[in-house]
């Protein structure tokens, strides 16, 4: 599995990246437009090569709780779904965040609300970046804009997840999931050995040796004072992410009179719009968000200070434009081009 050029779907890229990044387990449930993730895994049979476990669960609720169980043993465990399925997973996600379990969840967004449509959308922005379930928690949220990023971000996700003991969400959409593009694959990173697991996840539950206390994975704390202390600790963790793990891309922002702010497949459309504007002599730049949480507020504000106008482009009714993370930009009067999901 050396680095080579291939042509594949975004969903397939997710599956192949999971295998190549040494993922230990995948638990999922079919839903359009991301079913190719599990289909690819089942066809690849990684349990015969890398030893990765793949299981089709009875529901999204079960899949996310399987992620909880497996990941809490200190292994790299992932799931994927699309918007309605991700809604079902919110309970599991808040437990994962509350118990500080590293894991990877991929959301290939489709239009809502309700059963909505199977067409691409970006209307899960709030759900993804503001917690989603109950309680004060955050998911580290990556927004890929290409099949290559679908692939690469799986590798990046494991680093962040275990560094911060936090779930990582790859927030994609039906367009990126379904489109086929060229992709450079990476060399296979072997799954962790038993020693590596114990070193990288000393908090994991794999059987208590006589040399340590029993490890407990729980999100329950009946003592409210201690729960408050824990919540402050979580917030400190998120603050550190905001400080150190923000990712974004700036295109033609140096001399721009106007900038477009976008992420995911909207940023691909925005990129084309930028080129067309430049051809007409309008100096447009693109500020592409890669992490939606943490949001690159500071970096965006720096760019915004030198431009005449800002345009937020997204496939939702304006969730990103409304985000409090954009508040520092308010004095630059940003405009928003909103296209509710599925349109």
């Amino acid at each position: 599995m050396a680095r080579e050029l291939q042509l594949m779907k975004g969903n397939e890229a997710i599956a192949r990246a999971m295998i190549a990044s040494g993922t230990d387990g995948y638990f999922g449930y079919p839903i359009t437009p991301q079913s190719e993730v599990m289909e690819t895994l089942m066809a690849e049979k990684p349990w015969e090569t890398t030893g990765m476990t793949v299981l089709q669960a009875e529901s999204e609720v079960a899949s996310i709780n399987m992620v909880y169980g497996g990941a809490a043993t200190g292994k790299k465990v992932a799931t994927s779904s699309s918007s309605p399925g991700i809604s079902l997973m919110q309970e599991g996600l808040t437990y994962l965040a509350g118990a500080e379990i590293p894991c990877l969840v991929v959301n290939v967004m489709r239009g809502g609300p309700g059963l909505g449509t199977i067409q691409p959308s970006q209307s899960d922005y709030f759900q993804s970046t503001k917690g989603g379930g109950h309680g004060d928690y955050q998911l580290y949220t990556l927004a890929p804009a290409s099949v290559q990023e679908m692939y690469d971000f799986v590798f990046d996700a494991w680093d962040i997840a275990f560094k911060y003991r936090n779930p990582v969400l790859i927030l994609s959409d039906g367009a990126i999931g379904q489109c086929m593009e060229k992709l450079y694959t990476r060399d296979y990173i072997p799954r962790w050995t038993e020693e590596e697991r114990r070193k990288n996840a000393p908090w994991g539950t794999w059987g208590k040796p006589a040399t340590r206390d029993h490890n407990i994975i729980t999100s329950l704390e009946l003592d409210s004072a201690r729960q408050e202390v824990f919540n402050h600790k979580l917030q400190a963790k998120y603050a550190e992410m905001k400080e150190k793990e923000v990712r974004y891309e700036m295109l033609n922002c140096e001399d721009a009179d106007y900038i477009i702010v976008a992420y995911g497949s909207s940023s691909r459309i925005a990129m084309k719009a930028m080129q067309m504007a430049r051809e007409k002599g309008i100096k447009v730049g693109l500020f592409r968000l890669i992490t939606l949480f943490p949001f690159p507020t500071k970096q965006l504000a720096e760019v915004a200070a030198h431009v005449k106008g800002i345009l937020c482009v997204e496939m939702s009714a304006g969730q990103m434009s409304e985000d409090r993370a954009l508040r520092p930009l308010r004095r630059y009067h940003p405009h928003s081009r909103r296209g509710p999901g599925g349109s």
């Binding site: 909880y68 169980g69 497996g70 599991g92 794999w206 407990i216």
Partner: peptide, 19 residues
């Protein structure tokens, strides 16, 4: 005095499946 996980309501069999 053994390693333990606390599952969400009703989900223990799914959690245990993956373990």
């Amino acid at each position: 005095d053994v390693d333990f996980q606390e599952a969400a309501h009703g989900r223990a069999p799914a959690v245990a499946t993956a373990i």
